[in-house]
């Protein structure tokens, strides 16, 4: 049924503002990296912080506006909201990694993911309308489910970005290359460790996300698992990262192969998140825009 109480609200302007900030930050990081100008990357960091704040304001405002429209609920329940929440989590994760590891090169690989997500939300997110929840979605499990899943996805995005860096760096190290921006990257060994670190944050969140989804399904219709495409894809993602975790403790499987698994894992994440809705049928709500 088409929603008839559709309202956009002012929050969307803040999200659009966030999107523009992330675009500028992406450019700043890329210019900083390839032009070897850390001061430009530093500007990227500040713009990123501003984007995180503006995104937080937008989410809060959206929450308030949903109540003003008489359909009050936490803003994590449709495609648009999940996308902007995901982008926000990626930015927060990124800022954390950047601060903790004191290297300005990550931004060029991670922030564009957040920017692309905001672009997608802007153009394919149904205009950002606040839609009323159908009865099946009115559950506290939904909130726990969406938040845990998307925090997990964000960690995987960060991991995949760093995995790309790892592959570039590992190739450069193998060739004993001595020039170019690649020298600014942290050592391959450190990147390998970071790919893993991001996943050990993402994996428990995804696990909790799948479990809360199962608990919700059990509350809503009495089956915790029904092999619907979305469920199955979340399991696929989970299996890929489980394979990653075991690959990393096996001789001969860490490094390159682990990085590839991290990238494959993130591609399956995107499939789970968007592809299932675009290409496959199922129970989940944020389908077809």
């Amino acid at each position: 049924m088409e929603p008839t109480v559709a309202n956009i609200g002012n929050n969307v302007y803040f999200f659009d503002f966030t999107m523009i900030l992330l675009g500028i930050a992406s450019v700043a990081y890329l210019v900083g990296l390839y032009g070897d100008k850390p001061s430009v990357s530093r500007v990227g960091t500040w713009i990123c912080i501003l984007a995180a704040v503006s995104s937080a304001v937008a989410l809060g405002l959206r929450w308030v506006e949903s109540y003003q429209m008489g359909i009050g609920r936490i803003p994590v329940t449709n495609l648009y909201e999940s996308l902007v929440f995901f982008a926000w989590s990626v930015v927060l994760f990124h800022l954390f990694v950047e601060r903790k590891f004191e290297s300005l090169v990550f931004g060029a690989f991670v922030v564009p993911i957040a920017f692309a997500t905001m672009l997608f939300a802007h153009f394919y997110g149904g205009g950002g309308a606040i839609t009323p929840l159908n009865p099946a979605l009115q559950s506290y499990w939904l909130h726990a489910h969406v938040i845990t899943c998307f925090v997990g996805y964000a960690a995987f995005a960060v991991s995949a970005g760093i995995a790309v860096m790892y592959l570039l760096k590992a190739n450069a190290e193998a060739d004993k290359r001595t020039t170019g921006v690649i020298l600014l990257f942290p050592a391959a060994k450190a990147l390998d460790e970071l790919v893993y670190r991001a996943i050990i944050w993402g994996f428990p969140f995804l696990t909790a996300g799948i479990i809360t989804g199962a608990a919700w399904a059990n509350y809503a219709w009495g089956t915790y698992w029904s092999w619907d495409p979305k469920e199955t894809w979340s399991l696929i993602v989970w299996l890929v990262y489980a394979a990653f975790l075991h690959a990393r403790i096996t001789r001969g499987w860490h490094g390159r192969r682990a990085a590839i698994l991290s990238i494959v894992g993130f591609l399956s994440t995107i499939m789970c998140y968007l592809g299932v809705n675009l290409f496959l049928a199922g129970l989940h709500s944020y389908g077809g825009g």
């Binding site: 092999w227 495409p229 199955t232 399991l235 696929i236 299996l239 489980a242 394979a243 075991h246 399956s268």
Partner: peptide, 12 residues
């Protein structure tokens, strides 16, 4: 693990 993941794709 990888085989289970790949096989599951068919069912979707």
């Amino acid at each position: 693990l990888i085989m289970l993941a790949s096989a599951s794709i068919f069912g979707t």
